[in-house]
Amino acid sequence: MSTLVYNFYPLFLFLSFSFFSYSPHAHPTDSINPSSIHIANHSELENSRAFSRQQLKRSSPRQCQPFYTTFSDPSAVADRDSDSSNAPFIALSPPETYAFTSNGLEMYLHKPKGELHSANGMNDNLGEASTINSTFWIPVEGNASRAHFDYQYWLCLSRLAKQFRSNRDSAKVTYEVSCDYVPGVICAFILIDSVQASNDEMHLDEIDVELVGSGSARWQTNIFKPSKADPDPHYGHFDTKEQYSQNPSYASFHKYSISWDSEKIVWGLDGQAMRTMRKEDTYINGVSHFPGETDPLRLQLGIWDGSGAEGTSSWAGGPVNWDTAPQRIVATVRSVSVEC
Rank of each mutant, 00 (worst) to 15 (best):
R62Q: 13
A229Q: 15
A40T: 01
S259F: 08
Y250G: 05
I223A: 09
F19G: 13
S130T: 06
G127Y: 03
P112S: 08
F20S: 15
A91W: 03
V209S: 13
F290S: 07
T294P: 00
S85G: 02
V266S: 05
S118H: 05
S145Q: 15
D180M: 08
Q54R: 10
Y68W: 00
L297V: 13
A26V: 07
I132W: 06
S257I: 01
D281G: 03
K111W: 00
K113A: 10
S2V: 03
R146F: 03
R334T: 01
F67T: 06
P226C: 04
F51Y: 12
S227A: 12
Q63N: 05
G292V: 08
I192E: 09
G121L: 07
F253P: 09
E339I: 08
T131R: 03
E106S: 10
W154P: 00
F17C: 04
D193S: 12
A331I: 01
A229H: 02
E280A: 12
F238Y: 15
Q220P: 00
P95C: 12
E46Q: 14
T69M: 06
H148I: 10
L126N: 02
P139Q: 07
W137R: 11
K264L: 06
R168N: 14
R80W: 10
T3F: 01
R62V: 04
P319Y: 12
F67Q: 07
S85E: 11
G318L: 09
P326E: 12
R146M: 08
M122S: 08
L160S: 04
W322E: 06
I303S: 01
K162C: 07
S245N: 08
S262F: 02
L191H: 06
P28F: 12
A188M: 01
M274N: 08
Q246M: 05
I192R: 15
P248W: 02
A273I: 03
K228N: 11
Q152E: 13
D305Q: 11
S2A: 09
C187H: 02
T276G: 06
R328S: 14
F136E: 05
L299E: 10
I303V: 14
I258C: 05
H203K: 12
S158I: 01
M122F: 04
H42C: 08
S84A: 13
S257T: 06
T294K: 15
S227I: 03
A331F: 02
S36R: 15
M1W: 07
G302T: 10
A147P: 01
P10R: 09
A309F: 13
L4S: 13
P24V: 06
K113I: 14
N222V: 07
R334C: 00
L11Q: 09
H234Q: 15
M277Y: 10
G317I: 01
S245R: 09
D208C: 05
P95W: 05
R218F: 03
P112R: 02
I207F: 05
M202W: 11
S23M: 11
E141K: 14
L105Q: 12
S307I: 13
S75N: 13
E201K: 15
P183K: 07
Q196V: 04
F71R: 11
V212D: 04
N143E: 15
M122P: 00
N86W: 01
S178L: 07
D193E: 14
L211F: 15
S48H: 04
A217G: 00
A26P: 15
A197R: 11
I39P: 04
G104E: 10
L13Y: 08
D239L: 02
G121I: 06
